[in-house]
Design a protein around this nucleic acid. Structure first.
Lengths: 259, 259
DNA sequence: GAGACTTCCTGTCAGACTGACAAGAAGCTA
DNA sequence: TAGCTTCTTGTCAGTCTGACAGGAAGTCTC
């Protein structure tokens, strides 16, 4: 850091948001249709500039989410990466901080400021090559999805996709949707039960959808689950989208910035 | 993103660097003693502001590393996080992008611009409570160290701590130093050999330090190793420094227990 | 109310992986 | 050559994983 008598340049600071949810057992991402230039009419991740010098970055993210898509109460925004390549935005030097959030059935978004429309799109569709995303948002989205996959292995994140209480098979659907694989229900059952503190029984409530009623669980106290859930070598190598390049340079896999 | 007729605020953009290396089988971090206000005289991570509007962020990181500590050719800078809380810097709204790098025996640093001194410090010393680090650098450092620990599990990062060729026991020392645990050489040997593509034999060269000469290896082609190296539950829970609060200091309360 | 059907849950079994440890291999030193 | 060091190859029991059988407990249809 830290020079003093010389004048350091200033940049525009933006936030971009990768909001993932599950709808009908498929992974969806929140996209808006841009209502202003540049990239007017193109799809984009929600986001925007800081409102003023004093605004906290995470606060700005929440604000944009509400302004552009009408979503409040999105639980936890996790820092995903920084995208600040010169030239990524025609309006000047814009450095964007990306956040990732994952939540249970979120409501339909409502388009607001600068957004002609806001909606949930299946991730595979949004990442397919015939959809144009504004700026470098395709990359940010890909990074966010990959991050979600990795986090599912070690953290209790998957429960964030579910409601407050859930059945084990609902939890399994989360893993299947995010990882893009099929899992054996019986082995999955054993696995999640043996990870201490991952999930805990929630009373004797039951919920049913045709078959034998399932026991309800809720998220356990543990953040980092042990032993970890492990994707097969194949799943790791392939992902479920088309990326073949292994890791990306820009993301920051864990931890980071918000207070 | 994306407002147009209204004027978005601009912020100062800085980079901060967590550079880790191994010296005498202990993990060390590069710190400078600040030669200018604020925090003059305090220890800090190397870093600084963008030079101009057009400078790439990673390029700025490399430049600062060279200017402040005389280090060039630090291999790969990995994005670590963004630290932009209002008030973290008395000079105004400063948003800092932190990078992590890990390298084999780097040379002694040479203090340069703004740095009264630059040196390698044992990580446990730098993070101990009686050392004052400037700004929020204690947190950034803690995040960087934890990141390194996690990366060792899944990526071939450990080889980056070694020279171009190395013995398996040298590689083991890397894991022991970063994770802060002792490992069984025989099991470690089996483990790294069975992870396909992690390390490959490097000719028939040998190096010796008293006992039977060891075979030399070099980093394999694989970035993500499978099966992963797994820290024991205990190691994960404790870390190796003085932290007693589990692993969440910087992993942050993520989604899971967030009903 | 008797199947038929669905989903949930408990087991079993072989193979893979892990931690602990024995012992040989191959250098150096005295 | 004996003794010491470190590297390397094995062994063995316990645990974890993937594949799969089958019973439990509801709903649906007739």
């Amino acid at each position: 850091m830290d020079d003093d008598r010389w004048e350091a340049p200033r940049v525009l600071l933006a936030v971009d948001l990768v909001i993932l949810t599950l709808r009908g057992s498929r992974l969806h991402v929140l996209l808006i249709e841009r209502g202003v230039e540049p990239f007017r009419g193109a799809l984009a991740l929600p986001g925007g500039f800081l409102r003023d010098q004093e605004e906290d970055i995470v606060a700005a993210a929440h604000r944009e989410l509400f302004e552009e898509a009408g979503l409040a109460d999105v639980p936890h925004l996790e820092p995903l990466g920084v995208y600040g390549e010169p030239g990524r935005d025609p309006r000047g030097r814009v450095v964007s901080v990306a956040y990732l959030a994952i939540a249970p059935r979120l409501p339909e978004p409502v388009a607001g400021t600068d957004a002609a429309e806001a909606s949930w799109r299946p991730v595979e569709h949004a990442m397919s090559s015939n959809v144009e995303l504004a700026f470098d948002h395709r990359r940010i989205l890909a990074d966010g999805v990959e991050r979600a996959r990795v986090k599912l292995e070690h953290s209790a994140l998957a429960t964030a996709f579910c409601g407050e209480t859930f059945t084990i098979s609902e939890l399994q659907q989360v893993y299947e949707a995010v990882w893009g694989v099929r899992l054996d229900p019986r082995n999955f059952y054993r696995k999640v039960q043996s990870a201490r503190g991952f999930i805990v029984a929630a009373g004797s409530m039951r919920r049913t959808e045709g078959g034998r009623p399932a026991r309800m669980f809720k998220a356990g106290p543990v953040q980092a689950i042990y032993p970890p859930m492990v994707r097969s070598a194949q799943a790791v190598a392939e992902g479920s989208d088309g990326r073949k390049d292994g890791r990306t340079a820009q993301t920051m896999p864990e931890g980071g910035a918000n207070p």
